[in-house]
Design a protein around this nucleic acid. Structure first.
Lengths: 420, 420
DNA sequence: CTTATATGTTCGACAATGCAACAAATACCT
DNA sequence: AGGTATTTGTTGCATTGTCGAACATATAAG
């Protein structure tokens, strides 16, 4: 049988003993998580993967089926002699979440079921600027309404996950600072919960942290347990996966690399300090090096740069490669610190990856040899919606971790608002 | 009952189901770890702390006692009405490890029992330089011999933990690079195992990683789960505790911060790159700013600087504060990345802490507000032997994690060599 | 149509914890 | 000094959960 924990160390606080019920919870979670991440699987494959007994798997699947979280169908694929094993798969509508993304250039809302099934999605572009939080929250609720109405009649809604460009306290979704939106000390979690009135938990997290989560879980990263996701919208965001789990830090502020110090000769950053990484490698750093852009700014400027790069404009390529070099230098630092297996670039970096790659790799080469030799730098495989996908994973995590408790906890069987 | 796991995420690789035996292992480990870290505890306290039933605690302690790992004595402290609860404590000789430290200026070996009891310890100073690995390994074996002979007759030796100033692969204790010793690609774990011939596992790790471990577990850090230990001997070393566990990274190379980039105008580092953190804040950075030192170098120079600082020599204080500022800047980066609760300074920084503190705190102030407000910077509470203590924790970890398996696994009942 | 093989199903064994009743040991009160 | 309240160890049984063996079932191959 496998081991739950490993290595030196423990989480401080009361060390808790565990009883059989915890064992059951763990095994239910293991099975459900596998189905959620890997997709349809036969019962016999599950016995091999989990190492559990046939009878136990049968029992676990029975319970998950009773909870409405999985279904069993006849084994589709034929596979040699022996009694065919039924294929188990998640029921998308058995656990649905609302994923929200509040970015610099757009806002998005999606309804996503367990297994990663996207029922529906709305994304609206908006000009950059400072926004009234209440209006934003109301907009989100309005975007969510039709999506909820369009869900299948007997779905079960289990949570809301929101990604936001800012520094967020995990415990309660309190936004400490979101400079790109003009927000500070805003209880976003509470506001969303009040406005949505859905009776389910609302979790809020930093967008890059969720990008990392989305990429790690749905980016086809096989057995990668240590990775770093880096993206740029205006600043530089970063999410880290350590040992298969998101790095949160004490309050959830971990991964705030945009304002790490890399250049004493650098410009003054909007944060007030000098020499921050994002003043060298962020979006603005790139733009200001492309003089031919003139006064265009914001998303239009990004589009223009992408076009110029596609046209092989020398100045633009040089600007990209200069920003890429600094990006690489910062990445080298992260490689030294985390010894990851993979660095994934998203956002603007994803868009410009082809022009960036060479200089980034060159810059990253200054990391220590041992770690450098085992890391791969690549662009996001999930693409534009990683963050939204990550938000859904965040909202689904509680359910997967304890299917019985969360599924039973009611969160009523999703009666459509038109039925009321 | 408590939960074993938490949060989003899982360690990739085969997700394993667990059976009752795993449950037992977990509870044995929980109890033993508490006794190991917190010291003598009454049975009734254990029921409260673990949340387990009286009968279960009795059973667990019975098993640990049978394994020779704990003893029960009459409750020493009186405590009000009710039947007094017997005090349970670890048997030091029930699990003994050899802790080894290979540093720049000294080598040390100690025999340490579970609970952190140091039976004996030898430390020898040696001049800096490059050493023949074989000679070093033989020296360690020779230092260990008398310590082993002095152990109580019926002890049980369970492992060897070695700390080394270098980049070490955790899996097998392969030293990738140890510039201060002149080593490269050296299978130190194997060499030590062969030379010591003790039939117990030999684990090797980076000295700062073990410093972090030692400080976290024996530094009186109550409920701190996120901390960073930073020390300087020649370069800068760093160990990180994330969620109560050491950050290893994919191969164990995590925390190599000495050569992170902080200054494009910086000097060339011995690593070949330019602008590394340790060229600004490491030992040499400090020394070169104290011109009155003249040609003194190595440990003698460190001593001289410490003395000059104690005498309030202005140039020295200025040099220290300059190095401290750079130290603080690097710390700010780490605060941004990890959002820790505590930064602990060791090694040279521990020695000069009083003169460093102000400038370090000033430098660290450039970290983001949210994280800065919740972090404390202080010096090591364990002091000179943190690394050795960490090495013992490393070697004991397997036993504590699975008392039944490791204790039963033989590692014979420590017959003294003179008995043979 | 028979045989080999793989897998679901059933039921009892086994492991581990929890619970309730009882016993033991102490403090406190009269 | 003796009785009572309180806390905790001990014991035996109940409960939960997984495992294993025997049996049933469904397929491929001959």
């Amino acid at each position: 049988m496998g081991r739950v924990t490993n290595n030196v160390g423990r989480t401080n606080g009361s060390p808790r003993g565990v009883a059989s019920e915890e064992l059951r919870r763990h095994n239910l979670a293991t099975v459900l998580e596998h189905l959620h991440l890997t997709g349809p699987t036969t019962r016999s494959q599950l016995t091999v993967i989990t190492g559990l007994n046939r009878s136990t798997i049968a029992d676990l699947i029975g319970e998950l089926a009773d909870l409405g979280l999985v279904t069993e169908g006849p084994g589709a694929v034929v596979s040699g002699p022996g009694r065919p094993s039924p294929v188990v798969q998640v029921r998308f509508e058995g656990a649905v979440v609302i994923a929200v993304e509040i970015s610099v250039d757009s806002m998005a809302v999606a309804t996503i079921g367990i297994g990663g099934h996207v029922f529906n999605q709305i994304r609206i572009a908006r000009a950059r600027g400072h926004f009234d939080p209440d209006v934003t929250v109301r907009d989100i609720a309005e975007m969510a309404r039709p999506l909820l109405d369009a869900l299948p009649p007997h779905h079960r809604l289990v949570g809301v996950g929101a990604a936001i460009v800012g520094i967020v306290r995990r415990r309660d979704g309190f936004v400490h600072l979101a400079p790109n939106l003009g927000w500070r000390d805003l209880p976003l979690g509470e506001l969303l919960a009040e406005e949505l009135k859905l009776g389910v938990p609302v979790l809020v997290a930093n967008d890059s942290d969720l990008g990392a989560l989305g990429e790690h879980r749905r980016g086809g990263l096989g057995s990668i347990n240590h990775m770093i996701y880096i993206s740029a919208e205006v600043g530089i965001g970063c999410g880290v996966i350590v040992d298969g789990k998101p790095l949160l830090g004490s309050a959830g502020y971990a991964g705030e690399v945009g304002h790490t110090f890399v250049n004493p000769d650098g410009l003054e950053c909007r944060c007030g300090a000098t020499g921050c990484w994002e003043t060298e490698a962020g979006e603005n750093a790139l733009m200001r090096r492309v003089h031919s852009l003139g006064s265009v700014s914001g998303l239009a400027a990004v589009d223009a740069v992408a076009e110029l790069a596609a046209d092989q404009d020398p100045e633009t390529l040089k600007a990209i490669s200069e920003a890429g070099r600094w990006l690489g230098i910062g990445i080298a630092n992260l490689i030294n610190v985390f010894n990851p297996e993979m660095i994934v670039l998203g956002g603007l970096y994803h868009r410009l990856f082809d022009y960036l790659e060479e200089s980034v790799v060159a810059g990253a080469a200054r990391s220590i040899e041992a770690s450098r030799n085992m890391v791969e730098i690549r662009q996001s495989a999930v693409g534009q919606n990683v963050t939204l996908v990550g938000a859904s994973e965040l909202a689904l995590a509680d359910l997967i971790d304890n299917p019985a408790r969360v599924a039973a906890r009611g969160t009523r069987t999703g009666v459509r608002s038109t039925d009321v």
